[in-house]
Every structure is written in C-alpha cells, then in structure tokens.
Simulated scan of single mutants.
Amino acid sequence: MRAFEAIQLTAVAPGPRLIVTGAVHGNETCGTAAIRRVLQDIEQQRLAIVAGHVTFVPVANPLAYERGERQGDRNLNRKLSPTGDPQEFEDHVANWLCPLLAGHDVLLDLHSFHTAGEPFVMVGPEDNQGTLEPFGHAALEEALAVRLGVRRIVDGWLGTYAGGVERRRARLSHAGGAALDLDADYGVGTTEYMRRVGGWGFTLECGQHEDSQAPEVAYRAILNTLAHLRLIDAPAPSPAAAVEALRLFEVVDKAHDDDRFSRSWTSFDAVRAGELIGVRHDGTAVHAEADGRIVFPNPGAQAGQEWFYLARPHRRFG
C-alpha cells in the first residue's frame, strides 16, 4: 500500500491556499487523472503557479484506490474527522487529510458517480448561523461554482442527510444499527469538514465513473479554479450561460439488499409525485412523494445506506 501523497507548490506572491483532491473514493479516478495531467503541465512548464499556494492530492484513499473500490474499510466521505483512536484505514486517512484541509482556504474535491448523467457541482448552504452547518462564504462559493465548467449546481446535502438520519433512527429504534449511520455528522465529508474549519469548497461530480470525458471535466475545473483565484496567469473563466440550480430535499435508504428500482434511473431524471421509483424486497412500492429529480440512484447500495436522493429546482442562482 502506498504512503499518503500531497504535492505542494508555493509562489512568492501572496494568494489563496487551494487544495485539490482525487480518489476520495477509490473507484472514482477522474480526479486522479486530471491532477496528474496538471502536474505534468507544471513540470513541463506549460503552467506556472504565480501566486498563493496549491496542494494536489492525486489519491486521497490509497487502499480503496489500489483495490479499485469505493472504500477500504469504510466510506472516507462520511463522518470525516480526526480521531485519537483510529480503528479503520479511513481513520488513518482522516488523521492525515483533515489537518491538511484545515491548512487551506479552498477545496476542489473531484468525484464521479454510479449511473450515467451530466456532470454537476455540489455547493454548501447559503450564509446562516444555524447549528447544523453555519456558514459565511456562500458568495465566494457561488462565484466560482458557476465558473467550474458545468451548468448544474446542487445544494442541500447535509440538511437532507440529517433528515434521513432522523427517519433511520425512527425505523431502527427497535434494533441495533451502526452508530455512524445514526449520527447526523455521518453526512460530513470533505467539503463539510472544510466549511467547519473556516474554509469553503466544492464536490465536483465529473460524470459517470467510466465516462471518458470525466477526466476532461475535472481537468478543466482545476484550470478554471486556478484562473479564478488568480493562482495562474490566465484569463478569468466566464460563468455558465444557463445555470440549473437544484436543492436536495429527500433521501431514501435501501432497506434490504433485494430492494430494486422500477427501471434504470439516471441522475436528474424527472419524477412526478406518485411515480413508482422502486420496489422493496417484500413487494412494497416506493413512490416519489413530490415532483422533482432523482439524484445518485445507486442500485448497488447496501441495506441501510442511501438508495437515492430527490431534488427540486431552486432559485438560488437565478
């Protein structure tokens, strides 16, 4: 198993501190390919960091990456925080990665997803002083989100996840259940942790895992981020011409390994209230509670884990 690797470049001129991560999930390799391409550009002097500081992490989870699987012992992008008593491999990753994140201002975390679909970026909440995810850098996120090179922007992750945890608690109150899965903080991943330590950033979903264009989406996003933050000498990227803003509002867990979808769903397929989405192993039908879009449909999800999300249009960017 390889050691943890971070490549850091610091310019003489002051500027923001950016960190770019790939392979937080080991089977999501578009970010790794894009980061290595950017590093090659820098090594061959086609690109130069002229201000600030940039850290590139091509492979955040080396165990999962070497296995070619989503996780090693557990999902690194859930309940992300340092621990004084590491038990699983991802605990050791967190103890290395979290202090690294905390030393930066901005995070670009590069991912891909299970089923076919258009790339999109996930952003944090609007500015608020609530207890779940207080935040004060929404304007900074919004300005860069529309310049990453994708047109679809999604928010509402942690609030929707916390609501799902409450339903999970109610359903499993009579039984055991993994403690992590019953904790609202289980929804905290790289970007949520970044915001908790004073920074801001994005999860960029670059396309389906095997999509040949996903590394190109990731590469363009890195260059646009460097240019927008003025870390390289390049024209400022233009905002997307037609942004589609969506907000997650519901998450539905898989209750049994034999739960199945009614058809092959793709992220952002439209659903109508009452439409059949899937069937539980006991024959119970699962219908959409409201009009919206299905997001992250995962036919391979394990029992007790997220099966799919629902989102609806939001006027935040319009």
Rank of each mutant, 00 (worst) to 15 (best):
G31D: 09
G31L: 05
G31Y: 04
A33C: 00
A33N: 00
A33G: 00
A34K: 04
R37G: 05
R37H: 11
R37W: 03
R37Q: 13
R37K: 13
R37V: 00
V38R: 01
L39S: 02
L39I: 12
Q40E: 14
Q40V: 01
D41T: 03
I42F: 07
Q44R: 11
Q44C: 09
Q45P: 00
Q45L: 10
Q45R: 12
A48V: 08
V50K: 08
A51E: 01
A51P: 01
G52C: 08
G52W: 06
H53I: 01
H53L: 05
V54M: 11
T55Q: 10
F56T: 07
V57Y: 04
P58D: 02
V59Y: 06
V59R: 02
A60N: 03
N61G: 08
P62M: 03
P62W: 05
Y65G: 01
R67I: 05
G68Y: 05
G68H: 12
R70V: 12
R70A: 11
R70M: 13
G72K: 04
G72W: 03
D73N: 13
R74N: 09
R74L: 14
N75V: 11
L76D: 03
L76Y: 06
L76I: 10
L76Q: 04
N77I: 06
N77D: 15
K79F: 15
L80T: 05
S81F: 09
S81C: 10
P82A: 08
G84R: 11
G84S: 14
D85M: 12
P86C: 12
Q87N: 12
F89H: 15
E90F: 05
H92G: 07
H92T: 14
H92C: 05
V93K: 03
V93N: 02
L97P: 00
L97Y: 15
C98Y: 06
P99A: 12
P99M: 09
P99Y: 06
P99R: 05
L100W: 06
L101G: 03
L101R: 01
G103S: 15
H104I: 09
D105A: 08
D105R: 09
D105M: 04
V106M: 09
V106W: 06
V106H: 03
V106R: 08
L107V: 15
L107H: 02
D109P: 07
D109V: 04
D109M: 10
L110V: 11
L110Q: 07
